[in-house]
Every structure is written in structure tokens, then in C-alpha cells.
């Protein structure tokens, strides 16, 4: 696997398909994102293919201006989806990025509850089954119970903004969560549930369920469950799921026609 990835990186550079490649490298036991332009760069040998994850697409968006031509990115299916979404937000030019897709391990897929562990056209084949969806305890609750469940979790929030900071798709320069009038400025804990609901609503047509937010949350709030429920509903309601393709658009980002407005008259 490791060789195949390294080979794909070199091939991309040598063939001229990419002007640079972005990947995670293992350096002295640490994982460090690397941007290489030269097929002979020794870092390529150290390309990492384990279960650790990083928001490759966000780094890609940052480094793109420094790259001539196409930037190849070693990444997972999640990264492909992120890139699609970033493109919709006008933050990434898909013409100029190329995914060197790698499959996730079965363990990672199971841990993530991921139903899409293998990207289309991966650089290395692997037998990985889509995993069972993760538990969503809130789903079977009745309404008051559900509120209590969330309030209980939200009440642990320390307003570190970890969820937002780690989210590859939070691109707003000024964040709604920091707006005084909405969730109280700099107050700890934040106003709940407004703080978390606002973020959840904005994720409904954006979140690609990478789960990085939950990993970053020191308070162990089941953010993935929250966002997954909302985006699931969004899909049910509008038939739209973010990430899958770069072409389709969220119904909340165009006016559309009266006929498509659904049951309400």
C-alpha cells in the first residue's frame, strides 16, 4: 500500500499531471503535511497511509495559490467530498486539484460507521466493506427526552470552538457562533442550545460527515450524531446530500421554481 501511494505520487509529478503533491508524511514519529514538487523528494518515501486523518482538502485550499498547475492530494473519500463542498463555496478550484485516493482500513471504517470507505479510482485497491452506521441514541427518544439528551451534552460545552476550527468546511471569515447577539459573546458556557443548533443547521447541507469535529471536541459532545441527524433529514427532505458530487447544488443556494417548493401550497 505504502509503495503504491509513493509510486502514485512520483508518477503524478513525473508525468506532469501535477505540479505538486500534498500528503501526510511520517517524520520522526510525527505526522506532518508535506507539499513536494520534485519526484525525487525523499519525503515521498515516508508518505503515511495509516488510520490517522487530517483535513487534506483544507490544506489543499491553503496551499493552492503557491502551486503552479495542478495540486495532487493524497486523501480519502471524505477528502474528495470535502473538496466538492469547498468548490461549491468557491474556496477550491477543482480544475486544479487531483485526488490520489486511498481506501480506509476496515477498522477505521467500522470505527467511523462509514459507508463509503473506498474512493472512486483509488491508487491502491483494498477489500473494505462499508460499515454499519453508528448508533444514534437520540433517534429513538421522544421529543422532550431528546431535548434533555442534547441539553445534557451541550451543557458541557466549554466554547473552545474546536468543532468549528477543525471543520474543513467552516470557511466564514466571521463566524455566526461568535456573534454576540446570537450566542452571547465570549460567555462561558455559550447560550445553549442556540450555539449548537446554529452550527448544526449550517451543517445540514454542507457537512460530509468526516467526524473531525467530534475528534476535536474536548467535551465529548456527540457532534457527529447531531450533524448526521440533521443532514440525514436534509437528504430526506430535499433529496440532497452534500459532498457526493461537485455539480449538484443545495436547494438552499438557489431560488428554484415554485413547483419544487413541496407540499406547502
Amino acid at each position: 500500500m505504502k509503495e503504491k501511494v509513493a509510486g502514485a505520487i512520483r508518477q503524478a509529478l513525473e508525468s506532469g499531471r501535477a505540479g505538486a503533491v500534498l500528503f501526510l508524511a511520517e517524520e520522526e514519529g510525527k505526522l506532518i503535511p508535506r507539499l513536494v514538487r520534485d519526484a525525487g523528494d525523499p519525503a515521498i518515501e515516508r508518505a503515511y497511509v495509516g488510520d490517522k486523518r487530517f483535513p487534506a482538502s483544507a490544506f489543499a485550499a491553503i496551499s493552492l495559490p503557491a502551486v503552479d498547475g495542478v495540486l495532487a492530494v493524497v486523501g480519502r473519500e471524505c477528502d474528495r467530498r470535502m473538496m466538492n463542498e469547498l468548490a461549491k463555496l468557491n474556496h477550491l478550484d477543482l480544475e486544479r486539484v487531483l485526488l490520489l485516493g486511498i481506501p480506509c482500513s476496515q477498522e477505521l471504517a467500522d470505527a467511523c460507521g462509514c459507508d463509503h470507505p473506498v474512493p472512486p479510482e483509488p491508487v491502491a485497491e483494498a477489500e473494505v466493506r462499508p460499515a454499519e452506521a453508528l448508533d444514534a441514541p437520540s433517534r429513538s427518544m421522544d421529543i422532550p427526552e431528546r431535548l434533555a439528551y442534547w441539553m445534557d451534552h451541550f451543557s458541557r460545552c466549554i466554547r473552545c470552538y474546536g468543532c468549528r476550527n477543525s471543520c474543513p468546511l467552516c470557511v466564514c471569515k466571521d463566524c455566526a457562533l461568535e456573534r454576540e447577539e446570537l450566542a452571547g459573546k465570549d460567555c462561558f458556557p455559550p447560550d445553549i442550545p442556540v450555539f449548537h443548533i446554529i452550527r448544526a443547521l449550517d451543517m445540514a447541507d454542507r457537512c460530509i460527515d468526516c467526524g473531525i469535529c467530534e475528534l476535536s471536541c474536548p467535551a465529548d459532545i456527540p457532534l457527529r450524531e447531531l450533524y448526521r441527524e440533521v443532514r440525514g433529514l436534509f437528504k430526506e427532505h430535499f433529496g440532497y446530500e452534500p459532498g457526493i458530487s461537485a455539480e449538484d447544488r443545495s436547494p438552499l443556494s438557489f431560488l428554484g421554481e415554485a413547483a419544487d417548493l413541496g407540499a406547502h401550497e
Binding site: 437520540s138 431528546r146 441539553m151 443548533i197 427532505h237 431560488l255 417548493l261
Partner: peptide, 18 residues
């Protein structure tokens, strides 16, 4: 049109939050 979309969805999303 946006109102219809935003709030028809929000009505259902409220239930997700309890």
C-alpha cells in the same frame, strides 16, 4: 421561495433537537 424551503425544513429539523 427561500422562506418555504428554509422553514419547511426547519420545522422538521426542530424535532431533531427535541
Amino acid at each position: 421561495y427561500m422562506t418555504a424551503k428554509r422553514f419547511q425544513f426547519l420545522q422538521r429539523a426542530l424535532e431533531v433537537f427535541g
